[in-house]
Nucleic acid binder design. Structure first.
Length: 202
DNA sequence: TAGGCCATCTGGTCCT
DNA sequence: AGGACCAGATGGCCTA
């Protein structure tokens, strides 16, 4: 699948990044982010529980609706001896077992997506109705680098406090973000306080 | 039209 | 046995 390749490549690139490269996503995942920040959030099909509970949902058109599978297919399935994991069960029992497994899995994935939404909500990027939400992989990579950036900022703050308390012996703090002269330079883009305005093209 | 992203289904594996 | 987790497969939608 080509779907994962980009992610893997992105991951590899992210690993090689310095800790202050939170915003270097603009390079590794730039096109994704740019696309995300430019385009409006499309109305993604999200059948919700009715995908399983109500066979008429949009998802069912793809033909993979478990509920709509005809009795014929069930019989064929039985003849083929598929789903051999539960050989002692009648086709209908197997079917209903499968459906409940599918529903659980669907619920699990929805929970995962809810968690990702929660993560998105605390990552500083453009939260506006006209901005498409971050992809899953971009969310994770951005979150990781945001954490690293915050840790670095915290460390720098500690150094600053120590410097102010103890005087000259310590070297003056260095701002961790290349190209920024300090807090005053960080207001270029409110969505990305790191100062890299390349992600602020919205 | 190709590629990216996604939701869903499915079978396998591990754990309780 | 049943549930959770995972990865592969599939097909739909959207954008460049």
């Amino acid at each position: 699948m080509s779907c994962g390749e980009g992610a893997v490549q992105g991951m590899a690139e992210m690993k090689a990044m310095p800790a202050d490269a939170y915003l270097s996503l603009a390079h590794s995942y730039g096109h994704t982010l740019y696309g995300a920040l430019r385009g409006a959030e499309p109305t993604r099909r999200f059948p919700g529980p009715q995908a399983m509970d109500f066979p008429g949902s949009s998802r069912d058109k793809s033909g993979d609706s478990s509920e709509e599978q005809s009795g014929e297919e069930e019989e064929e399935e039985e003849e083929r001896g598929s789903e051999g994991k539960v050989p002692g069960k009648k086709p209908k029992e197997r079917r209903s077992l499968r459906l409940s497994i599918n529903a659980r899995e669907r619920r699990r994935m929805h929970d995962l997506n809810d968690a990702l939404d929660g993560l998105r909500s605390v990552i500083p990027y453009a939260h506006s109705p006209s901005v498409r939400k971050l992809s899953k992989i971009a969310t994770l990579l951005l979150a990781k680098n945001y954490i690293l950036m915050q840790a670095q900022a915290l460390e720098e703050m500690r150094r600053l406090v120590a410097y102010l308390n103890q005087g000259p012996p310590l070297a003056p703090p260095v701002y961790p973000y290349p190209g920024t002269a300090g807090p005053s330079a960080q207001d270029k883009c409110p969505a990305f306080p790191g100062g890299n305005s390349s992600l602020c093209k919205h």
